[in-house]
Amino acid sequence: MSIQSITDIEFGMELGPYLPDTALPNSAAVADAVGWGNAARFTNHERSRKEGLPGALVPGILGMGFLCALIHREIPAARIQKVDCVFRAPLIADQPCAVTAIVTDIDTTAGTAELDLLIRNETNETRVVGTATIRMPK
């Protein structure tokens, strides 16, 4: 069903899973685009491990980007009013992850909906949780 307005949103509706590309060059490109340069933690697994990390990281803002992309992919009419992410544990580059969301509240008068957001890794461990408020046409 195409979701065009707030009345098309249903409580408990699930979005995803969206399986984003976590390739290491993507982490490096994002770090470069936001001005973090070529920090090893986003560009090099081996050097990251020497720094005590489990591997090169997916930048937290890219995790947020995955969540925003999921919302827009599944509800193109949505405008994200607020997105809030808690980085519970690192996302590691080159490791698959799954991005999902579920609708937890709907305000048809205001034309808004609340979503719980989640990113899990390939062993189903929660890495990022969050919430979003989206505005929809009434």
Partner: peptide, 11 residues
Amino acid sequence: ATVARISGETR
């Protein structure tokens, strides 16, 4: 736009 494209954004 680079961050958006790599995120998988479609808009």
